[in-house]
C-alpha cells in the first residue's frame, strides 16, 4: 500500500475507527514512514485543537436556562413560528403523555411522522446531492437498493405518464431503513418513501390517507406489507395519481 493510500485512511485512524484487523499494518507503516507519521500527528493535533476551540464556545445564558427549566416560551419573535406550541399546551401534553394517554401517543406519533417526512423531503431538495442513485430508468434505480433494504419493491413504468423518475437514496424513517425516490411532476418534485409497514400506526391504519403539513401535501397508501408515502408541494390530484401507479406496480 502506498503512502497516498494510507493517508486517505488516516482520518479513520485518528477517529479511533480504523478496522482493528488492519491496525497493525498501519502502525507498522507509521513506524517506518516519518512523513505519514508527521501527517497523522498534525491531523491529531488539529482534531484536539478544534475541540479546544469550539467546545463550549457558546454557553447558554442563565436566563435561557431558567426559561427552559420552567418550560415557558420566549417573548421574542421566533424564527420557527409555525412550529411553536404554547408553553401551556406543552405542559398539558406532557401531563397527558405521562398519564399514558393512548390518544396523545397516537397524535404525537402521527405528528412526528408527518413532520419527519416533510423534514426528509425538504432536506433532500435543499441538498446539493439530493439522491445517491441518479437515473430516470427504473431498471437502474430499483437494483441499486438490492442489499441495502430488508425488503423489495417494484417501480412503475413512468414513460407515458406525467411523471419522471429522478433517482433514489436510502433513508431511515422511524429508525428503520427505507427507500426514498425522487420524481418530478412538471416543475414540482415529489418524494416517494417506500417503507416496511410494520410500525404501530401503519398497522393500526391510523395514518391518514392524505394530510397537509407545513404547506406540503402528504399521501399515504399501502400495498401488501409496504407503506408508500408521498410528500410534495404538487397538487394533491397529481400526488394521488402517482401513488396509484406505485400501488399498482406492487401487485403481483
Amino acid at each position: 500500500m502506498t503512502c497516498d493510500t494510507w493517508r486517505e485512511r488516516l482520518d479513520a485512524y485518528i477517529d479511533d475507527s480504523f478496522p482493528p484487523e488492519e491496525l497493525n499494518q498501519l502502525e507498522e507503516h507509521l513506524r517506518v514512514c516519518p512523513s505519514c507519521a508527521a501527517e497523522a500527528l498534525h491531523r491529531l493535533k488539529l482534531k484536539h485543537a478544534t475541540k479546544a476551540a469550539a467546545a463550549a464556545r457558546f454557553a447558554p445564558s442563565s436566563e435561557f436556562r431558567s426559561r427552559i427549566a420552567q418550560g415557558m416560551p420566549s417573548r421574542r419573535k421566533r424564527l420557527f413560528g409555525d412550529l411553536w406550541i404554547p408553553g401551556l399546551a406543552v405542559a398539558a401534553a406532557i401531563l397527558i403523555a405521562l398519564a399514558g394517554s393512548s390518544v396523545w401517543e397516537w397524535h404525537a406519533q402521527r405528528q412526528q411522522a408527518l413532520a419527519e417526512l416533510v423534514d426528509l423531503h425538504v432536506t433532500t431538495l435543499a441538498s446539493v446531492n439530493p439522491v445517491d442513485v441518479i437515473s430516470t430508468d427504473r431498471h437502474t434505480v430499483k437494483p441499486w437498493f438490492q442489499g441495502k433494504l430488508p425488503f423489495s419493491f417494484n417501480l412503475p413504468e413512468l414513460e407515458n405518464s406525467p411523471f419522471r423518475l429522478l433517482g433514489g437514496k436510502l433513508v431511515y424513517f422511524n429508525h428503520a431503513p427505507g427507500a426514498q425516490l425522487l420524481c418530478a411532476s412538471g416543475k414540482h418534485q415529489i418524494s416517494v418513501f417506500i417503507l416496511q409497514g410494520d410500525w404501530k400506526f401503519a398497522l393500526s391504519g391510523t395514518f391518514p390517507a392524505s394530510a397537509r403539513e407545513k404547506g406540503f401535501n402528504i399521501e399515504s397508501t399501502r400495498s401488501a406489507d409496504l407503506r408508500i408515502l408521498l410528500v410534495s408541494d404538487a397538487n394533491p390530484g397529481d400526488i394521488h395519481e402517482l401513488a396509484e401507479l406505485l400501488k399498482a406496480a406492487q401487485q403481483p
Binding site: 401534553a93 405528528q111 412526528q112
Partner: peptide, 8 residues
C-alpha cells in the same frame, strides 16, 4: 419536538 416525539 423531542417532547412531542418522545414516544417515537
Amino acid at each position: 419536538k423531542a417532547l412531542r416525539g418522545f414516544s417515537s
